[in-house]
Amino acid sequence: MEELLFYAFAALAISSALLVVSLKNTARALFLFFVTLFAMAGLFLFALADFVAITQILVYVGGVLILMIFAFMLSNKELLKDLQSTSSRFIAMPNIQSLLLSIAFLALMTYGIIAWQQQTPEWIMQNIKMNQVIQPTDNNISQLGVKFMTYYILPFEVISIFLLMALIGASQLSRKEGDE
């Protein structure tokens, strides 16, 4: 049952991502990107990362994608017209060089994964032996909160400052020129 659900989510993620990159209409592709992100959040659940899955839905689906669709629809009408290509085909013709390059890269990575499969890293074996693997019954969220505020306090503060800087920079960049 578990494997079946995993394969269903994986197939959903991969097929919808393939459709996202092959659709001609950008608005359609952006809306289809929702499906990909939801399927990825479902895959996170299989790695027992419930909080990451929820954050994925909140931040990506609720924030990033809405921002993209807003920027897409609030911008000029010509932007939309520019994206509609001259040919009326529903699915764009694949660009042969980039297709070749990405398939070669996929083959290389799959080969690497299969070659790596025999030798699991030392720390994974050690943690399995010491029973330090996350179980489905664990309370992940409180543990994550404790780790954020103790062991990972420095990266947490750095990323907070970084996020503030990025938001100020984005609002400065998107300001209309001329109004002081």
Binding site: A17, V20, L99, L101, S102, I103, L106, M109
Partner: peptide, 9 residues
């Protein structure tokens, strides 16, 4: 790996 290569494409 599959998702990464789709993004690369």
């Amino acid at each position: 790996a599959c998702i990464f290569c789709i993004g690369l494409y």
